[in-house]
Design a protein around this nucleic acid. Structure first.
Length: 395
RNA sequence: GGGUAGGUGCCCGAGUGGCUAAAGGGAGCAGACUGUAAAUCUGCCGUCUAACGACUACGAUGGUUCGAAUCCGUCCCUGCCCA
């Protein structure tokens, strides 16, 4: 019964699967889907669920988005699901607390900013966009019973983070059990052929398969799992939970470049592989290799000009300890104590912290170190606090 | 419903009447150094004050005490066990 799969689909699948894991049957599973699609002239429906409670996308998401784009380039249909309903449950993975339900307007607004960011990578115009509130909110209690009877508690508990939290005595709300079910039901509703997600989505994506079968599908979706990249500290996954290690897609170019320069050296090969089309070259000086990486990624999201400017600025400010080219001017009406000024400019969170900065020799005016916390700034000049904060003071 | 263990600063986590703005770690910030905002080392790390010091803080609230994160009452929240 197993139908012969032609070489070209295997090749195609091999390219698509690069960096990812497909369940079940890996390359062959994917190749089979591709062949079926080609033979029947029906594009594959490639699903990605979006959580509208966190409209900020970061480079971690771009791994998945780049993969979506590849499917698009092969003529397949990507289906983006805005989690209007799932947003009310909250993502059960790990720490996040139950979030207040978002209004319809908020969901729509967040979805919009989502798409703006995504459009830097994928072709949103040709994507199918739906909101799962459209079918989940109108489900009856009877419908829900039918859905829930498709799985057992033991099955749900095999999910890694549930098992772990249970074992550690951390709370698990019953409502969280619904999250995988809702997400799985989405696959039934949109007739997904493949669902993409991070490796942390393994359980949810496989649940989609089971539920599709439960609802009568004879060719349920494949799960395509993509690696999660580490944040800039190289240890924790890039996630909004750790904003300090996160590089947003709409980060300003200078910050994006700088944050990329702050990743540990060991992380470079992974970033190269997952976030760019370039190849990492271990022969090169690591610093130069990191600069090339930072430049490339900054360029992808901000264009060549901005990337060049960001790079020049980095060389100038960080490497040569110079002054940034595009200083923001701050106009003062009257002489101001440095401490107040530092707070006012947002260079320190409190006056106490500002004092410490001065005491630690981090504050300079026109290149001269300020060592007295009672100094008044009363003339034009450049104020510097630490390595990165500069302001041009004008009266 | 009963029993039992808990709720500490951005996070984790010590602390069981004064020496506690509260150990330690992480994160963050600064300085030095460097091949980078890597690594490493050092310092800082509640708010206000020039400073003395004042205020705020250990789930909530009300007490006891010269004095409470630490003791007592009530309440809220979470885990586990039993029913």
């Amino acid at each position: 019964m197993s139908e012969k799969i032609e070489e070209i689909y295997i090749e195609q699948a091999t390219r698509l699967i690069e960096g990812a894991e497909v369940i079940p049957n890996g390359v062959m599973g994917l190749a089979k889907k591709l062949q079926k699609s080609a033979k029947t002239s029906v594009p594959l429906r490639v699903k990605l669920g979006l959580d509208p409670t966190r409209p900020d996308l970061h480079l971690g998401h771009s791994v998945v988005m780049r993969k979506l784009k590849q499917f698009q380039d092969l003529g397949h249909k990507i289906v983006l699901i805005v989690g209007g309903a799932t947003a009310m449950v909250g993502d059960p993975s790990g720490k996040s607390e139950t979030r207040p339900a978002l209004s319809k307007e908020e969901v729509a607004q967040n979805a919009k900013t989502y798409f703006e960011q995504m459009s830097r990578v994928v072709d949103i115009q040709n994507a199918e966009v739906v909101n799962n509130a459209d079918w989940l909110h109108s489900m009856s209690f009877v419908d829900m019973l039918k859905l829930t009877s498709g799985v057992t508690v033991a099955q749900i508990m095999t999910r890694d983070d549930f098992a772990k939290r249970y074992k550690e005595g951390l709370p698990i709300s019953v409502v969280e059990f619904f999250y995988p079910l809702m997400q799985a039901y989405d696959s039934v509703e949109i007739k997904a052929d493949i669902e993409l997600g991070g490796t942390d989505q393994r359980f949810n994506l496989l649940m989609g398969r089971d539920i599709q079968t439960y609802y009568g599908s004879d060719d349920p979706q494949l799960a395509m799992l993509l690696p999660l990249i580490e944040g800039t500290d190289g240890i924790v996954k890039m996630s909004k939970t750790y904003p300090e290690h996160c590089i947003s897609i709409n980060e300003n170019p200078k910050n994006m470049y700088g944050k990329l320069m702050s990743i540990p050296d060991e992380l470079m090969p992974r970033y190269y592989q997952l976030l760019t089309d370039l190849k990492f070259n271990s022969e090169n000086n690591p610093r130069d290799e990191k600069m090339r990486l930072a430049y490339e990624i900054t360029k992808m999201y901000n264009g060549e000009e901005a990337a060049t400017a960001a790079q020049n600025d980095f060389v100038n400010v960080v490497q040569n300890k110079g002054i940034p080219s595009d200083l923001k001017e701050t106009r003062l009406g009257a002489p101001t104590p440095v401490l107040d000024l530092l707070v006012q400019l947002g260079f320190s969170a409190s006056k106490g912290e500002a004092k410490r900065l001065v005491a630690q020799g981090a504050v300079k005016f026109e290149g001269e170190k300020i060592s007295d916390i009672s100094v008044m700034v009363s003339q034009n000049g450049v104020l510097q606090a630490g390595k990165r904060n500069y302001a041009k003071i004008v009266f």
